[in-house]
Design a protein around this nucleic acid. Sequence first.
DNA 1: CTTCATGCAAAACATTTGCAGCTGG
DNA 2: CCAGCTGCAAATGTTTTGCATGAAG
Lengths: 154, 154
Amino acid sequence: MQSTVGKHAADPEDRLDQMLSRLKERDFRITPQRLAVLRILAASHEHPSVDKIYEQVKVDFPTTSLATVYKTITLLKELGQVLELGFPDGSNRYDGNQPQPHPHMVCVRCKKIMDPDLRSLAQLTKEAVQKTGFKIVSHRLDFFGLCPECQGKE
Amino acid sequence: MQSTVGKHAADPEDRLDQMLSRLKERDFRITPQRLAVLRILAASHEHPSVDKIYEQVKVDFPTTSLATVYKTITLLKELGQVLELGFPDGSNRYDGNQPQPHPHMVCVRCKKIMDPDLRSLAQLTKEAVQKTGFKIVSHRLDFFGLCPECQGKE
DNA sequence: CTTCATGCAAAACATTTGCAGCTGG
DNA sequence: CCAGCTGCAAATGTTTTGCATGAAG
């Protein structure tokens, strides 16, 4: 299954190298636990939750603690290498493959999150700037609904 | 100060009446505490937080508990009479004047939230549907940046 | 009157923090 | 080697819940 529509995702190898570079140039250590978290975030297109990342890390590194996963994600956020998608219900999903803000399509049934490539977003942003005079530094755009697979069910 | 740009806000009186109608038709009681919360939500354009609502309610009704404010807001959410804006940092802001999803401009410095009227949103939504096949039921769009007043400061 | 709402305090929950011991570079 | 990282457990902060009392209709 492909979770990316339109815009192509970054190569996981390249993303991993980039993340490692950012850590090294700021003299952060590459520990096995960190490397495991980076690998998962660089490769996955499923926008995993902290728990999902934690579970996966423990497969190769069973002693890893949840706190370490949180600390690593916090560090990556500060370095701008992971995009955090926090939802009002308290759930969090992470995108390490495309850490810049971008629109998401969230399936309310199966919780899948896809990345559409929306050309008209630039125009919308321009309109927002013109009408409000804001100096925009970031944005968040989510559409909630039923993905094609879930529309037939129930 | 006017926090609404473009699209005009609903009349507070009308919104209050509508909220009261929704409660009554489902046989929920109109208690003084609930009425106080409804008034604040119907009238305010400042997208208040729970604490702000709680503080204001206590001015007229000092014995009110925070739990009651939460319960009332939860009830109004279920009735579709208030829009909850939850942010990744855990903060929540509420819009009872325009309970349907709509874009927001959030000032990262003074925390002001404005409602721009963005015509090109409909087109963006259409593009999202065409590219992903989702059946969209809701959305969330926030722009983060500096409002005109805060751009000159610091 | 009867049922539902209130208010208190305790519970729940995800995330953060303090710290002793370990380890990457 | 030794500053920084890990893992444990305890703390945190916000929202939710249980329950006895009180009030709306």
